[in-house]
Write a protein that binds this DNA or RNA. Structure first.
Lengths: 189, 189, 189, 189
DNA sequence: TATGAATGAGCCTTCATTCAT
DNA sequence: AATGAATGAAGGCTCATTCAT
């Protein structure tokens, strides 16, 4: 029994529908149906549709962020840090598929409020900071950290989308190889 | 004076709006305003909103495909082919920013028709085929071509999005470095 | 408080407007206004405008049919049966003026669905059957029953329309005389 | 070569479409298509759609009126006059089917202007006058002439509609019998 | 607290009408 | 004179939001 069952149900339903059809393509009745809840009930928990996406986005980013940050090998070397992030991303994608797709589809959208954007930035900063350390150590390339994040994150998410479309099987071997690929993309040569 | 000014205007306006707000977040009046055209006029050129996105998507994929395929170094080695594709992608992104963003946001969407999906697949096959050749030659990794495409394309598009958000300046030096990164991600080590 | 007030209100409003201005000349907002209901509310009770006319038509035919059939003098002679039908028609026209006008204006229209047409035919068959019996008994002319129905129904409805336009007063005496006229038009001479 | 070929074409097309789908169910493009004329051309001959129906209605009433009045047996007795009217009505219905259906569907509609209504009344007066004469002579019943017109006209038109629907074959014998029926409905017994 | 009926703004689309050619 | 492209008001319908129960 979570904080509130109905609210959870609504958030889960919204997550699923937003991931599937996007914000504007999802209606409140769709979410209510999926959550087995009356349409009016949604408005007891969220001021309006926009508040709902923003809540959801912030939750999602927090979850994602926590997944990558917990047990972070602060003392490890860059390769270990990279492995941690990459593997956690993989586990997260498996376990919270819709959350990842939702975050990716939603980040930067016109309906996000300031807090959502800030949270996302703050999360990015963490990764950026780690890469900055790696750069100082000469372990990874001398390239803007934002660029390296884009490369790794973009590659990973695209691969995951293709996998979700059923066009590719993401075996552990493949994921290992992709990790290597991405590491090769940013490590110092 | 182009073949048809109004139709062009509508397509350009739709491209811009769809890239900015997505299909469901864009209304016909928005497109009409942007195109400096009456809302009804759009229906002289396109049967309905869905026909319009599909037309636009097919045009866009064709343009993108042509950009990558023209002057393709069929006789060149894998590295040259990769360079061709990557640089053309970069030039395309600069020149047809909205087109690239639109294609990325739209591919795989529920409102695309069969023809749109086929055209996109056909284009992907071309790239896949090139990678398959490279694999046989032992120049690039032994990894599903679809995975390698995802890595390079995903990395590139993500970087481009970040650049569009103004969070990163895509200098020629950076693009050169990113090309190297992406090549490192797929080349045989 | 009827079974459902709003649905009744909508049906009554639609009946009035359709009788007054026809199907295509009546807009959903007109019906909503007349029913003192929001336009959207209509769609909670009827899938669309066409479903609404068809529901209304089927209701109307049922009411009309019931009015003519209840207490039908199955054992009576043809003159009694005719009197029953004619007088019931008269009472119905007085009580459900708009229903009669609506049925008359709507029967055979391109927007009626199969069920509506079937119901109307089925109702007609009943009258036809009674006339067939009368013909066998030699009480009424040897003329296609459909022709006799057309004569009596056509005469009656036209008279009623003229009365509704205020151009004629339909006194009980007149109605009695018209009944006689119509009977003379079909009885065996 | 009539007064103007295009105008004729438009009127004929409008007649056909209005008879088939009613005023509000008929669009200007439908009429233009049917008339093999540009939509704009219609506005060179008629101020707007309402002017067009009214013109058409007035033309139609005139044609109908002329058909019934020409060679009218002013000197004949009531039965001959009735026969004239009834047969001319029959011939008119055969030859100008759409015109009759259009007049019937249109008379009394909300979009007719004063002149249209007046013309229709004036035409009715003629028939009414003849019946009044017949009444004075004691040949037909002592019933409001408007009522008798309704009976005969209503019966006739209804029969004709049923025939047009293909549900009844209007043989000369039947028409003769119906004439007798209608005469029986109004003659003095 | 939870619901879902009710609402009306706004969406997609059509069509009467205009006007440049 | 004739056209048909262009327009925007208005129609059918949806859906975010409210509110009585």
């Amino acid at each position: 029994m979570a904080v509130n069952n109905k609210q959870e149900d609504i958030l889960n339903a919204a997550l699923k529908m937003f991931a599937l059809r996007g914000y504007d393509g999802t209606t409140i009745p769709m979410i209510a149906d999926e959550a087995n809840v009356g349409a009016g009930t949604i408005y007891r928990y969220f001021e309006n549709k926009q508040t709902l996406v923003n809540s959801l986005f912030q939750n999602s980013v927090r979850t994602f962020s926590d997944a990558l940050r917990s047990d972070f090998p602060v003392e490890g070397d860059m390769r270990q840090k990279f492995a941690h992030i990459f593997r956690r991303m993989g586990e997260f994608a498996e376990q919270y598929t819709e959350t990842l797709l939702f975050i990716d589809a939603t980040a930067g959208s016109y309906y996000l409020d300031e807090k959502s954007n800030e949270m996302f930035q703050e999360f990015m900063s963490f990764i950026e900071h780690q890469l900055d350390i790696g750069k100082k150590e000469g372990k990874i390339r001398n390239m803007p950290s934002k660029a390296m994040i884009s490369i790794v994150y973009g590659a990973f998410v695209q691969l995951f989308k293709v996998k979700c479309n059923g066009m590719l099987e993401a075996t552990p071997e493949l994921m290992k190889a992709v990790e290597e690929s991405c590491w090769d993309a940013i490590r110092m040569h």
